[in-house]
Design a protein around this nucleic acid. Structure first.
Length: 883
RNA sequence: GGGAGUUUAGCUCAGCUGGUUCAGAGCAUCUGCCUUACAAGCAGAGGGUCGAUGGUUCGAAUCCGUCAACUCCCA
C-alpha cells in the first residue's frame, strides 16, 4: 500500500470516529469493572465550542480514554444546560427579527414551543463539535437540563427543600437585570471599575416644627436620579457639623418630600460631605439602614430601568437619561453645588454584559445556604474532594462557604423549570409537585379551592438550580433514587472545569450531593486555566481573538489542535494560545507518519537472522528499558494531573527524540539491506506501544497508525487496548544509552566545529577502559559519526582532534587541516571547568561541618564526584599531550 | 480595604519534602546539511546573578522576613 507523503487527518478522523461509534466503544453499562465516571460541564445549549471548551473537553477526553485503557469502565456523560437567560434572550430576539412577534403577544405555552424548536435546531451544534474533537462521550446518555426526568427532579428538589424550610419566599434586595427583566443571583453580577461622578446636592432643612431654618445640608451622590426615592438623610452621630440637626428634617429636591435626619455610625465622616442620602429601594446599604431605622421605601424604578410613577418627575425616562435630566434640573434650581470625578464600581449582568444591574427590592425565592454549606465545606476541607492544582482554591472556597449568602433562585423568565408554587386568590400559596397536590394541600388546611382557582407562580428557576443536580440526575439519581446506575456511577471520579465557576457550580454541586446522596459528587476537581491569546488577553467576541475551532481542525486536524492546546497548558495556569502551537501538533503527526513509512518500507525486506549484530540488540534492549521508564513516569504524571508534561514527555522526548532520532537510526539497515526479523518485530511492537501511550492525547492519528502497522483482527482496536503495568528498568542499560548518545553528539559537535563536511569520513581512535561497551555499539557509532574505522588505543594519538567524554578519550583523525591552538584551547577550557568543579567538591569535603552534618549519602556522592572529576582531569591532561 | 497567587533563557513554563559546575524543556534565534521516512525535516550551537534585599544553614532557585511589579478572587 502506498502511503501519502504527509499525514492527512481529515479522512482518518471521520473514519475512526465512526468506527468507534459503530463498535459502541464509548458506551458504558454497569458491570464488574470499577467505574470511571465523568460528567461534562454542560455547555449552553445555544452555544458553540470556544477555546475554553476545547481545552476542557480535551482534558476530559484524555482522562477518560486513559481510564478506558486502564481497566476501568469509563463513562463520560455529555449534555447541555438550558441557559435560561441567554437562551430566552436569543429566542425573544429571533421571534422579533424573523417573525415580527413580541414575547408579550405569546402565551407561555406558545413561547416554550418556539424555544424548544430553537433548541432542536441549534442545540446539536455543540455536540457535533465535541465529536469533531474526538471526544469519547457515551452519546446514548446525552442529557439536557430541561429533559422530562430532569424537570421532574428539579421540581422535586424545590418542593423538598421548601418542605424542609430551606427554601423561602420573601421581599429582599436583589440584583435586577433591567434588560432581561429578571432577578439575578449575587454570582451573576460582574463588577467593573469605572470613572464616575459624585454630585454634591443641597437639601433645604426644616426644624421639628415644620419651619424652614434657612440652612441646608449637602450630600454627595453618584446616583442623582434616585433622589426621588430618598426617605432620609443620614449623618454620623459623632460628626460635629451635624450634631445640631437632631429632630430636623430635610426637603428632597424636585419632589419636596420631607424626610428625617437620622444618625448612624455607618456613615463615614470623611467621605463626600459626611451626609448620606438614604434611598432604601435602590441601594443595598441604604436598604439595611432603612430596616434599622424603619424608613419608608419608595421604589422609583420600573422593571425595565425607567422611572416609575413613584418618582413623580421624569416618569418613563430611562435611568441614565433621567440622571442627566435630574442634574440639569438641580443645576437650574441652584441646588447642584459641584461635580467631582470619582472612581467607582458598577455591577453588570453576566449574561447581558452591557447592562448595569440595578439593586432592587423584590419578592423572590431564596435558598437558605448556611446549613447546606456546612457539609459541603467539610467535604473539601477534610480532603474528601480534592481540588487541583494544589490548595490554591481551598482558601477561596472556604471563605465563600463560611460567608455564603442566601441564593436567589427565581427568575422572571419562562425558559426553565416553572416554580411549583400555587397561589389562591387571597395570595396564600402551597408548594407542591403538581396542581392536584396543591389543591389537596389547600384542602388539608381547610381551604376548599378548585384547581382553576389556583394560579401557578409565573417565574422559573435559576439554571444553576438545575445544574447543581447534574452529577446525580444524569443517572436519574434524583428522580429515581437508588437505581442501579446511580449506585454504580456515583460519586463520579473527576470534574474538569474552569475556576471561574467554583461558586456558581462546583460548590453548589457539592452541596446538592451532600444533601441528596450524603456523598460528594466527585473525588477530584481539576481546574483548567483560562485560555488567553498570545498577548495574554482574554478571548472574547469583541476582540475577535478567539479562533474558530472547526476552522482550526480543518487546517491542522483534531489531533494537532488537541496537541496545541495541551502542550501550552500547565496544570491550572492560564494558557496563552496561539495557532502556531497547533503547527507543533501537525508536525508531530507528520513525523510519526513518516516513521510509519520507514517501518513499512522495511516490512518487505524482513529476513530471518539478517543482522543479529550486537548493536541492534543493544538498541532494542535500550529502547525497551527507556519505554518502560517513561511508562512509569507517565503514571505518576497522570496521578498529579500533569497532562501537558505527560504529553511533552511521550511525544517530544520519547517518540520524537528517543524513538525516531535515536532508536530508528540505530536499527536502520543500510541502503536496501534486509532487516533482521526479530528486530523488525520488536520495532513494530515498540511503535504500537508508543501509539498506545499517546492515544489518549492524539486518538485519531494513533489509531490510524496502529491499524496500518499490522493486519488486525476484528475488534483489535487501539481505543480499547489495555495497558500493562510497566516492567522494571535496568538503570545500567539506560546509562549506556545515554553514554552512546553523548559520544555521538560530542563527536558530531567536534566535526562541526572543525569544519569537517558531513560526507567526509573520519577515523576514530578510542582510549577506554570499557572496550566491551564500545565494541557492542561499534557499527552504530561508525554510521552515526561517519567514521570509516574504529580502533582502540592506550595512548594519545597525535595530529587528531582530541575529546574527553566522561572518562574515555577519543581521537578523531581527519584529512582536514587542524588548528592545534584552537584544540588546545578547547581542552584547556574543559580542564579549567573540571578543576573548578573538583575544587568546589574538595571545599565541601574538607569542611568538617559538612562531613559531620550532611547525610552519609550526600557525603558519599561528593566522594564519587571527586573521583570522577579526578579521572576526567587525568584524561584531559593526557589528551593534551597529544597536541 | 481583605485574601490568594505569580516573578527562572527573547517567549511559555518545569524544577517535589534544601545537596552533582544545577540551573532544565518546548518554542524562537544562529550555524551546517535537499544524507534514498520526514525541509512541516536532519545534525549541531549560543543564551539566565533563578524579581530585589536581609536571614536560617556546612550548603538556598528551593526554607523564613521585608520590599517591588503583575494577576485573580472578595468587599
Amino acid at each position: 500500500m502506498e502511503l501519502s507523503k504527509n499525514y492527512t487527518p481529515a479522512a482518518a478522523e471521520g473514519k475512526w470516529y465512526q468506527h468507534w461509534m459503530d463498535k459502541g466503544y464509548f458506551r458504558s453499562k454497569p458491570d464488574n469493572r470499577p467505574p470511571f465516571t465523568v460528567v461534562i460541564p454542560p455547555p449552553n445549549v445555544t452555544g458553540v465550542l470556544h477555546m475554553g471548551h476545547t481545552l476542557n473537553e480535551t482534558v476530559q477526553d484524555i482522562l477518560v480514554r486513559r481510564a478506558r485503557m486502564s481497566g476501568y469502565n469509563a463513562c463520560w456523560v455529555p449534555g447541555s444546560d438550558h441557559a435560561s437567560i441567554a437562551t430566552e434572550a436569543k429566542v425573544v430576539n429571533m421571534l422579533k427579527t424573523e417573525k415580527g412577534i413580541e414575547k408579550s403577544q405569546l402565551t407561555r405555552e406558545e413561547f416554550l414551543k418556539h424555544a424548544f424548536e430553537w433548541k432542536e435546531k441549534y442545540g446539536g451544534i455543540i455536540y457535533s463539535q465535541i465529536k469533531k474533537l474526538g471526544c469519547s462521550c457515551d452519546w446514548d446518555r446525552v442529557t439536557f437540563t430541561m429533559d422530562d426526568h430532569y424537570y421532574e427532579a428539579v421540581i422535586k428538589v424545590f418542593v423538598d427543600l421548601y418542605n424542609k424550610g430551606k427554601i423561602y419566599r420573601g421581599a429582599r434586595m436583589i440584583n435586577w437585570d433591567p434588560k432581561a427583566k429578571t432577578a439575578l443571583s449575587d454570582e451573576e453580577v460582574l463588577y467593573k471599575d469605572l470613572q464616575g461622578k459624585l454630585y454634591h446636592v443641597q437639601y433645604a432643612l426644616e426644624d421639628g416644627d415644620g419651619n424652614l431654618t434657612g440652612e441646608s445640608i449637602t450630600i454627595a451622590t453618584q446616583r442623582p436620579e434616585t433622589i426621588m426615592g430618598d426617605t432620609a438623610i443620614c449623618v454620623n452621630p459623632d460628626d460635629e457639623r451635624y450634631k445640631h440637626l437632631i429632630g430636623h428634617f430635610a426637603i428632597v429636591p424636585l419632589v419636596n418630600r420631607r424626610v428625617p435626619i437620622i444618625f448612624d455610625t455607618y456613615v463615614d465622616k470623611e467621605f463626600g460631605t459626611g451626609a448620606l442620602k438614604v434611598t432604601p429601594a435602590h441601594d443595598i446599604n441604604d436598604y439595611n439602614l432603612g430596616l434599622k431605622h424603619n424608613l419608608e421605601v419608595v421604589d422609583t424604578l420600573n422593571d425595565d430601568g425607567t422611572l416609575s410613577a413613584a418618582a413623580g418627575v421624569f416618569v418613563g425616562e430611562d435611568r441614565f437619561k433621567a440622571r442627566k435630566l435630574v442634574v440639569a434640573a438641580l443645576a437650574e434650581q441652584g441646588l447642584l453645588v459641584k461635580e467631582q470625578e470619582y472612581t467607582t464600581r458598577l455591577g453588570y449582568s453576566e449574561r447581558n454584559p452591557d447592562t448595569v444591574v440595578e439593586p432592587r427590592i423584590s419578592t423572590q425565592w431564596f435558598v437558605k445556604m448556611a446549613e447546606l454549606a456546612k457539609p459541603a465545606l467539610d467535604a473539601v476541607v477534610n480532603g474528601d474532594v480534592k481540588i487541583h492544582p494544589g490548595d490554591r482554591f481551598l482558601a477561596t472556597y472556604k471563605y465563600w462557604m463560611e460567608n455564603v449568602k442566601d441564593w436567589c433562585i427565581s427568575r422572571q423568565l419562562w425558559w426553565g423549570q416553572r416554580i411549583p408554587s400555587y397561589y389562591a386568590p387571597d395570595g396564600t400559596f402551597e408548594v407542591a409537585t403538581s396542581l392536584d397536590k396543591a389543591v389537596a394541600q389547600f384542602k388539608a388546611r381547610g381551604v376548599d379551592l378548585k384547581a382553576e382557582d389556583l394560579r401557578q407562580d409565573d417565574d422559573c428557576l435559576d439554571t444553576w438550580f438545575s445544574s447543581w443536580l447534574w452529577p446525580m440526575e444524569v443517572f436519574n439519581g434524583v428522580s429515581n433514587p437508588g437505581n442501579e446506575e446511580i449506585n454504580y456511577y456515583y460519586p463520579t471520579n473527576v470534574l474538569v472545569t474552569g475556576q471561574d465557576i467554583i461558586f456558581f457550580w462546583v460548590a453548589r454541586m457539592i452541596m446538592a450531593g451532600m444533601e441528596y446522596k450524603n456523598e460528594k459528587p466527585f473525588g477530584d476537581v481539576y481546574f483548567t486555566g483560562m485560555v488567553r491569546d498570545k498577548l495574554g488577553r482574554k478571548m472574547s467576541k469583541q476582540l475577535g481573538n478567539s479562533p474558530d475551532l472547526l476552522e482550526l481542525i480543518d487546517r491542522f486536524g483534531a489531533d494537532a489542535v488537541r496537541f496545541g492546546i495541551m502542550i501550552a497548558s500547565p496544570a491550572g495556569n492560564d494558557l496563552l494560545f496561539d495557532d502556531s502551537s497547533c503547527e507543533q501538533g501537525r508536525n508531530f503527526n507528520n513525523k510519526i507518519w513518516n516513521a510509519l513509512k520507514l517501518v513499512k518500507m522495511w516490512e518487505g525486506r524482513v529476513a530471518e537472522g539478517a543482522s543479529s549484530s550486537e548493536e541492534a540488540h543493544f538498541a532494542v534492549n535500550w529502547f525497551e528499558n527507556r519505554l518502560n521508564e517513561v511508562k512509569a513516569q507517565v503514571i505518576d504524571l497522570f496521578k498529579d494531573f500533569k497532562l501537558s508534561e505527560a504529553l511533552n514527555l511521550i511525544c517530544n522526548h520519547l517518540i520524537w527524540n528517543d524513538f525516531c532520532s535515536w532508536y530508528l537510526e540505530w536499527v536502520k539497515p543500510g541502503f536496501e539491506q534486509p532487516i533482521d526479523a526479530a528486530i523488525y518485530k520488536k520495532t513494530v511492537y515498540f511503535f504500537e506501544e508508543l501509539m498506545h501511550l499517546a492515544h489518549p492525547f492524539l486518538p485519531f492519528v494513533t489509531e490510524e497508525i496502529y491499524q496500518l502497522l499490522a493486519t488486525r483482527e476484528a475488534g483489535d482496536d487501539l481505543v480499547i487496548k489495555q495497558y500493562a503495568a510497566p516492567s522494571a528498568v535496568d538503570a545500567n542499560i539506560l546509562a549506556q544509552g545515554e553514554l552512546a548518545k553523548e559520544v555521538i553528539t560530542s563527536i558530531r559537535d567536534a566535526r562541526a566545529k572543525n569544519q569537517i563536511k558531513p560526507k567526509d569520513p573520519i577515523a576514530l581512535h578510542i582510549d577506554t577502559a570499557q572496550q566491551k561497551a564500545f565494541k557492542q555499539i561499534e557499527d552504530m557509532l561508525i554510521k552515526q559519526v561517519n567514521a570509516k574505522a574504529i580502533n582502540y588505543v592506550n595512548a594519545p594519538v597525535s595530529g587528531c582532534i582530541a575529546l574527553v567524554i566522561q572518562k574515555d578519550k577519543f581521537y578523531l583523525e581527519t584529512e582536514n587541516e587542524l588548528d592545534p591552538a584552537a584544540q588546545k584551547e578547547a581542552l584547556l577550557k574543559d580542564l579549567a571547568y573540571n578543576q573548578g568543579f573538583l575544587a568546589s567538591v574538595d571545599k565541601k569535603l574538607s569542611n568538617e561541618k559538612f562531613v559531620q552534618n550532611a547525610k552519609p549519602e550526600a557525603v558519599e556522592l561528593e566522594r564519587k564526584k571527586k573521583a570522577d572529576a579526578e579521572a576526567k582531569i587525568a584524561a584531559i591532561t593526557e589528551s593534551l599531550k597529544s597536541l
